[in-house]
Design a protein around this nucleic acid. Structure first.
Length: 139
RNA sequence: UGAGUAGGCCGGAUGGUCGCGGACGAUGUGCUGAAAAGCCUCGUACGAGGAAAGUCCGGGCUCCACAGGGCAAAGGUGCCGGAUAACACCCGGUGAAGGCGACUUUAAGGAAAGUGCAACAGAAAUAAACCGCCAUGCCAGAGGUUAGAUGUUGGAAGCAGUGAUAUUUGCAUCUUGUUUCCCGCCUCUAACCCCUGGCAUGGUAAGGAUGGAAAGGUGAGGUAAGAGCUCACCGGCCCGACGGCAACGAAGGGCGCUAUGUAAACCCCACCUGGAGCAACACCGUGAAAAGAAACCAUAAGGCUGCCCGCCUGUUUCUUAGAGGUGGCUAAAGCCUUGUAGCAAUACAAGGCGUAGAUAGAUGAUCAUUCAAGACAGAACCCGGCUUACAGGUCUGCUCAUUUU
């Protein structure tokens, strides 16, 4: 059922402009420190050299996402850039994600040649590994 | 043109699409709601820096008692004047140091209040005779001069004898021995002179590989040798007409002039400083006056950073548990231009600019064009400074050198 829905969604967003127009609302951002701690402690995780993704079922219909960049990444400018790149990718992927999870994305260290494509590739791989994203969605 | 010096400015640009933040607007037949309003949608303009950084100073603002007296402690400042809300910043000056120069640097009070430290090196470090130089005395050695003694070669004279020659039996000559004198030499002794070495006493700080610093420097005279011992010049110290608001400068005069450096070591002197910070703090609100433990009930406890006085509160302290929201929150001792005053910092007046305000935290992605190919780097209450990081570009003043006229 979900698969078919996603397929339909995938066909629907063939137009690039339409895909880019997707917006993220504030409600979908993970806010409290408690929530982060809960996800770290109880959630599943997967990692690459640059990113770590934690996820946990939150028993609701919304998916909430938090992004963390440690000081190992670099100074404030570098951390900001990593966060924005991840955010931009998430913005595009958000409506394809399976619903009802709390997700925390941690940037481990700085990639000097980090761009949207690199990060997106890693992110899609990790989300797929955790079962949040279906293979068919790799359009 | 090159080298340098001081200061200012810029910190990729333009456009398209999508996205994010708060603000404003909407005759949106949008949703919720009694309404106020909120949400959604659409539109509009706006949306990180010169350092936003480090948090090193100074303030505003908030609460603590609007901040009180005395003592102590702690911290800070430290040439003078100005400017400022204030400052350790800034401006102008003075002194000192560096540079041919433009210019730069400077925590720049006190070392006869006291204490401490000064490694290594060096003869010696706050004090000095280790070496050296000089004088005197003693001892030893070499040399010279004079005197004396002994010995001896030679010469001269006297006496004696042997022998030889010739022979005038005497005499003479040669020879031998001895005595005296003279000259020379050797040895010894004494005195004196000079030199060398050693020891002692005294004089001397000119010289001695060191050091940040060795008791002013250079030259001349002088002296036993030396020395401001004397003199010349330089330096230093004291007084100082006069100039300057002042720091300070200084004509001139006097003094031969012993006593280092370090106070970004303690310290002394003068002056200044109440504490905590926007996670301050105020309000709404959930819970419901949360639970437990301890102290104290008036000569007590807590607060005003230690003590005493004084004042305030009736409760105070500790541990655990601690939804959420709103305000504070951006117009500010703000910046720019012009004029006036001033060397300037700056002040005053006029005109203009003044539009980030998030709250897990907004500036990104991508495409195209272009160039010199993009460094350091992200607001978190706000200002004034300081410090540190920084690809490259650009402008202006000044200095030195070279070339040309």
């Amino acid at each position: 059922m979900i698969n078919t829905l996603n397929k339909i969604q995938c066909y629907q967003v063939q137009d690039l402009a339409a895909e880019l127009k997707k917006k993220m609302k504030k409600d979908y951002v993970l806010v409290n420190n408690r929530d982060y701690k809960r996800v770290y402690r109880r959630g599943k995780y997967a990692a690459t050299a640059f990113l770590v993704v934690y996820c946990l079922d939150n028993n609701t219909e919304t998916t909430r996402i938090g992004i963390t960049t440690s000081k190992k990444v670099g100074n404030a400018v570098k951390r900001n850039r990593m966060r924005r790149l991840i955010k931009e990718n998430i913005r595009e992927l958000y409506y394809r994600l399976n619903k009802g999870f709390d997700i925390v994305i941690v940037a481990r260290k700085s990639e000097n040649d980090a761009n949207k494509e690199n990060i997106g590739k890693d992110l899609r791989y990790l989300l797929y590994k955790l079962g949040l994203l279906d293979r068919e969605n790799k359009c």
